[in-house]
């Protein structure tokens, strides 16, 4: 009896080890451990043995059963690993992934929202105003009376006034978001911290760095103790946040009738990295943000006491900032709806 048990064990174990898949292993299991399997039948035969032998043979039979079960489990696990490995080898995982069909937010919006967020972080609120604007808010309130030579730098698109009660020249397409300074300041008292993003229009021939429609983000701060150093600090903080810590920034004197002192801001041209290109007119610097301390005449026009409050204002050339950010060499790329451009963002 013992001998036949050992034979069962040996032949079963060798079959188990050689089993090539789960199915074969299942068959082997049935063949030995099934209801009429060899081991099962052998174990039933133990009852026919003399009582004295039963105990010893019974123990051996249980031991054989345990070994077979363990071997089957072990083999089964190793087969599973092998199979999954084989399965993996069948697909080429270097094939491209199947991408979800999602669209792209325009780079202008991406930068715009970032700009608004950066300013929110330093206490600014965002506002929005009309593009069809009056000469009053676009020029007069900003210390640019009708015969001022500064109007030459902002050639205006005039609107057809026929069929309306409007005097010709009175309503225009705004040339600058600074038009919102008067609109907002005449309605509230300082302290003020505001940014106004928006589109502007000028009579301008289109080229790589100019357009007749372009975006700006106007900003202004008015309070009892606003200083020129605050203007420098705010501009530097914002530009470094947007363009990276290493961005080089320089300031220069300029003149706009609505600021005094007047400041212009340049950042190192990212299109050519300082080698000189048509975008920066070979100066390696790109003008990005005219600014200055708000002119007393503007403060007076909105009813503020310019001896008691001061302010600074700036206008970020948003369209230009976007092109510099992504090293695009032409402003016109921003209004080109070609998906080959849009998909890059």
């Amino acid at each position: 009896m013992e001998e036949s048990l050992m034979q069962i064990k040996n032949s079963a174990v060798s079959m188990i080890i050689e089993a090539e898949d789960q199915k074969e292993l299942e068959e082997i299991k049935l063949q030995f451990l099934g209801r009429s399997g060899k081991l099962t039948l052998a174990m039933k035969g133990i009852t026919k043995l003399p009582t004295g032998d039963r105990r010893e043979v019974g123990q051996l039979a249980n031991e054989v059963k345990r070994v077979l079960e363990e071997s089957i489990n072990e083999r089964s696990n190793s087969l599973k690993t092998q199979e999954s490995k084989k399965r993996r080898e069948k697909i080429d995982i270097t094939n491209p992934g199947v991408r979800p069909d999602i669209g792209h937010i325009h780079p202008m919006s991406q930068v715009l929202y970032e700009v608004v967020d950066v300013f929110k972080g330093i206490g600014f609120q965002a506002a929005d105003g009309p593009e069809i604007e009056t000469d009053h808010y676009n020029f007069e309130m900003l210390n640019i009376p009708s015969d001022h030579p500064a109007r030459d730098t902002q050639q205006t698109l005039y609107l057809d006034t026929r069929q309306s009660k409007v005097t010709p020249g009175e309503i225009i397409l705004r040339t600058q978001t600074s038009s919102m300074q008067g609109r907002i300041m005449e309605k509230v008292k300082p302290p003020i911290r505001i940014v106004v993003p928006g589109k502007n229009f000028r009579y301008e021939q289109v080229d790589a760095s100019h357009g007749f429609e372009f975006w700006q983000v106007e900003g202004f701060v008015v309070d009892s103790n606003v200083r020129l150093t605050d203007l420098f600090g705010t501009i530097e903080y914002v530009l470094k946040k947007l363009m990276g810590e290493k961005t080089k920034i320089k300031f220069a004197t300029t003149n706009f009738p609505f600021v005094e002192p007047g400041v212009d801001t340049y950042i190192s041209c990212t299109v050519c990295n300082g080698r000189g290109c048509s975008f920066c007119k070979y100066s390696t610097w790109s003008e990005i943000m005219p600014a200055g301390m708000i002119h007393p005449n503007v403060l007076k026009a909105v009813g503020y006491d310019h001896q008691k409050v001061a302010g600074f204002a700036f206008a970020i050339g948003l369209s230009r900032l976007v092109t510099l950010r992504y090293q695009m060499d032409d402003l016109r790329l921003l209004t080109n709806p070609d998906l080959r451009i849009l998909e890059q963002f």
Partner: peptide, 15 residues
């Protein structure tokens, strides 16, 4: 370079 030191306005602005 400094940052504005005054109070941060919290009232919602016009526009």
């Amino acid at each position: 370079k400094t940052m504005p030191v005054g109070e941060i306005p919290t009232k919602r602005v016009p526009y």
